[in-house]
Design a protein around this nucleic acid. Structure first.
Length: 818
RNA sequence: GCCCCGAUAGCCCAAUGGCAGAGGCAGAGGACUUAAAAUCCUCCCAGUGUGGGUUCGACCCCCACUCGGGGCACCA
């Protein structure tokens, strides 16, 4: 009897049966299993699934299926992040509605996911572009608005000339649009912002709880991004101006070393100080030049310093010195107060500026390094404070505390914090997104759309011009945009911008608990019973944007009383990327490996196995290093084991071959441990070992009739079901069981089988191995020492040498130092 | 420039202070076969990037460096 392992037949056979059984349904009220929430980042429907999706979903599936086997009621939902630019761009290109393109792609991805045997609960899907979903975006926006966390302001914003829309700070990468790599420019616009900066401290400090549960890399990136710095604000009088000037500094200890003041050239203060003065012309010219420069130019740190002296002076509050005030582009208008005290001796940027403009340099920290005014290198380190009156002789830290105290007492300054994080700009001048539920009325101003009128639905795109032209296409949809003011009834206009799609994805994990619920965004009881997410799986590309925003929303919803937790994702796993020949797969590079081709050639299970086995999940996979045919061969081998088992289901395992039983028990133990610590590649290796051992037992050991062989084969099938569900299900049937193997339950391990009869102890002299002996695992130190010293190889090696030290670690080793 | 992570066989990767090799890929030989494929068996291969240190003992801990990957970067 040697039927062939036919992956296509197996796939076709089991898929419809699973559809009937629905082993992964998580919403049954009668379900008494403890709950677990395993979440994969939802995809953007830009086409069919690709290799990257395949890896992520294979990994998420191992985790979800494992917890189901362990007896948990696992919620493992999927949905689509279906608003966004690609749909709109495709629609423009083809002259169709973004909706049609989007939902066609969703159907395609959905059917690929089913075939890929993802253990999703299909009753919980959502699409962010459904009015039933984005209605709650609008509700949430209004909640934020009522709390003052959503506001409009005029500001010079990041503008992508190619996408013709504004971008959040987070979407600008090295001065380029993250989507299309066009150089981002600045544009003065009135836009909607969310006050994420109000949460900066909590977003930063609460990361302590995620330590060890999220990848260190992600925590570090978020810390960098929030960029909290501590220091002080110091007030300087300006000659001839009633209002003083405040600067932010991290080094108030160097206040006596300040020799000039710099204000951001594009700040209001600079314009005011320059107004009407003799240098007004120079200033304006410099300002225009700065504005024309792209971010990339402006951010280049090796650029020579430039600036204009404003012919005004500030007074140093600690020593009364007159400090010239300069305007320069190296000070940023939107960080701190937009003005700095320059301490050239101890800040490289200030020193570069001082040397370019021939300004004074005064050392106030004695660090033992060369004089900065001669070396041109600012001394940043700690040292003894000098030339600083009451601070003289102190260390940096003590001086900082003291000067803050002194300034506070006189009302001239105070301790202060600053953040790199800016408020989140959410307006987008595009069509395919959630309309902002605000109506602009000439009389009443901004008016929130009443909750009863939500959702503000997108109009049909048919006949609309969606081409990017710098203003929202919705603004031209007259029938849509013109409304009556909900407050006074006068003619008014809808806000024509749509929301950044990151808004949509910042709370979708809550909606999964109650996708049909139409009273609220989510059912609070359901959320309470499922959230926070136990395990989140997704790419590191979202390390800042999506994860930071989701954490922010969770904290806001907590504060609004809707949630009783403050962090949405308890554990996070970042999978690496799938590459080809060392670089990202792409059509233009010509190194694209099509997932569907691979699935057709090798089968779903072989591809899933290859991706899981390729290495640690967080490492990048190079498809050139992967052998799907090798995976297929292994599955074949495992599957054939099930055909060689001749005992019946239910046979008493305890009468089986002890050696094989021990291997099975150890394997199950190791596989569990490896899965729970995300070392899926190691788990697979352990399954391979078990298959090898079972093969050997069948062919040249206890034989296929031994109950231990059945025990091993069932263990193989169940553990393999995490990675290769089709093969495992078929094995399960061949072993005489009914589907679904997904619900078979993780085999119980008899702990007695985990204890070894004997272990190998190593005998060392000076740390070098001289012999190995088999001993009882329970041997005492004294007995092991005796055995070691009596050992022939050791005795021969020792000769008559004096033993200086003896280290015994029963039952593993004896080390004799001579 | 600052910060983080990594480096083990031809290749992908195991080994969480105690035997460097679990698993796989590639390669070689053999069994089976008329033959091939498939299958099965056997074999080959490094002393852990470099240099120091701690330790009875270091791939593992510490320091410095090299190379690779990533993050931040005129944020005062």
């Amino acid at each position: 009897m040697h039927e062939a392992y036919d992956f296509e037949a197996i796939q076709e056979k089991w898929l419809p049966i699973w559809d009937q059984i629905e082993p992964f349904k998580s919403g049954r009220s009668s379900d008494v299993r403890p709950k677990k929430y395993v979440l994969d980042m939802f995809p953007y429907p830009s086409g069919d699934l690709h290799m990257g999706h395949a890896e992520a979903y294979a990994l998420g599936d191992v985790i979800a299926r494992y917890w189901v086997q362990k007896g948990f009621n696992v919620m493992h939902p999927i949905g689509w992040d279906s608003f966004g630019l690609p749909a709109e761009n495709a629609a423009i290109k083809r002259g169709t509605d973004p909706k049609a393109w989007t939902y066609e792609n969703i159907e395609m991805q959905k059917s690929s996911m089913r075939r890929y045997a993802c253990s999703f609960d299909w009753d919980r899907t959502l699409h962010t572009s459904d009015p039933e979903y984005y209605k709650w975006n609008q509700w949430l926006f209004l909640e934020l608005y009522k709390k003052g966390l959503a506001y409009r302001k005029d500001s010079a914003v990041n503008w992508c000339p190619s996408c013709q829309t504004v971008l959040a700070n987070e979407q600008v990468v090295a001065g380029l649009c993250e989507r299309c790599d066009t150089a981002v420019t600045k544009k003065k616009l009135n836009q909607w912002y969310l006050k994420i900066t109000d949460y900066a401290d909590r977003l930063l400090d609460d990361m302590a709880d995620l330590e060890g549960k999220w990848p260190e890399k992600v925590l570090m990136m978020q810390r960098n991004w929030i960029g909290r710095s501590t220091g002080a604000e110091v007030t300087f009088e300006i000659e001839g101006r009633a209002e003083p000037l405040t600067v932010y500094t991290t080094r108030p200890d160097t206040l006596h070393g300040a020799t000039f003041i710099v204000v951001a050239v594009d700040s209001a203060l600079a314009a005011e100080l320059a107004a009407g003065s003799s240098i007004q012309g120079n200033f304006t010219e410099y300002l225009e030049k700065t504005k024309a420069a792209s971010d990339i130019d402006r951010l280049a740190t090796d650029r020579p310093k430039s600036g204009v002296f404003l012919e005004r002076y500030a007074i140093n509050p600690v020593n009364g010195e007159k400090l010239p005030i300069w305007a320069s582009d190296y000070v940023l208008a939107d960080y701190g107060t937009g003005a700095i005290m320059a301490v050239p001796a101890h800040d490289q940027r200030d020193l570069d500026f001082a040397r370019a403009m021939h300004l004074n340099v005064r050392t106030v920290v004695e660090t033992g390094e060369d004089d900065p005014s001669i070396s041109g290198i600012a001394t940043i380190g700690d040292g003894i404070i000098v030339n600083s009156g009451s601070l003289n002789g102190l260390s940096k830290e003590k001086a900082i505390n003291k000067i803050i105290e002194e300034l506070s007492a006189k009302g001239l300054g105070k301790g202060a914090k600053n953040y790199r994080l800016r408020d989140w700009l959410i307006s987008r001048q595009r069509f395919w997104g959630t309309p902002i539920p605000i109506i602009h009325c000439e009389k009443c101003g901004e008016v929130a759309v009443p909750e009863a009128q939500l959702p503000v639905q997108l109009p049909d795109a048919t006949g609309m011009d969606l081409k990017p032209k710098g203003s929202s296409p919705l603004g031209a949809a007259d029938a849509w945009v013109n409304v009556k003011c909900p407050q006074c009834g006068a003619d008014a206009k809808r806000d024509a911008d749509t929301m950044d799609t990151f808004f949509d994805s910042s709370w979708y994990f809550l909606r999964y608990t109650s996708v049909q619920f139409d009273d609220r965004a989510f059912d609070q009881d359901e959320v309470k019973s499922w959230l926070p997410v136990d395990q989140y799986v997704g790419g590191v590309t979202h390390a800042i944007l999506h994860l930071l925003y989701s954490r922010f929303f969770t904290k806001v919803l907590h504060d609004l009383g809707y949630l009783d937790f403050e962090e949405p994702f308890t554990r996070l796993l970042n999978q690496g990327m799938v590459q080809m020949d060392g670089s990202a797969m792409s059509k233009s590079r010509g190194n694209l490996v099509r997932l569907s081709d691979e699935l057709n050639t090798h089968g779903v299970d072989a591809i899933r196995l290859s991706l899981v086995f390729a290495g640690p999940p967080e490492d990048d996979i190079d498809w050139a290093d992967v052998s799907p045919s090798g995976s297929f061969k292994f599955l074949n081998r495992a599957w054939r084991v099930s055909g060689d088992v001749t005992s019946n289901p239910g046979v008493d395992f305890s009468t089986g071959d002890l050696a094989l039983r021990k291997i099975t028990a150890k394997s199950l133990f190791d596989i569990s441990f490896a899965v729970e610590s995300f070392r899926f590649n190691v788990a697979v290796a352990r399954i391979m070992e078990l298959v090898n051992a079972t093969r050997k037992a069948i062919d040249s050991g206890c034989g296929g009739a031994d109950p231990a062989v059945r025990e091993a084969a069932e263990a193989i099938a169940i553990s393999l079901s995490l990675v290769a569900p089709y093969t495992a299900e078929d094995m399960w049937e061949r072993l005489g069981h009914k589907p679904a193997i997904a619900l078979a339950g993780w085999p119980a391990i008899d702990s007695a089988l985990l204890e070894a009869d004997s272990v190998t102890a190593v005998l060392q002299i000076n740390g070098k191995i001289k012999d190995r002996i088999e001993v009882s695992p329970n041997i005492s130190d004294a007995d092991l020492e005796k055995l070691g010293l009596a050992n022939e190889a050791i005795k021969a090696e020792l000769g008559g040498a004096e033993i200086k030290k003896l280290i015994v670690r029963a039952p593993k080793l004896v080390n004799i130092v001579i």
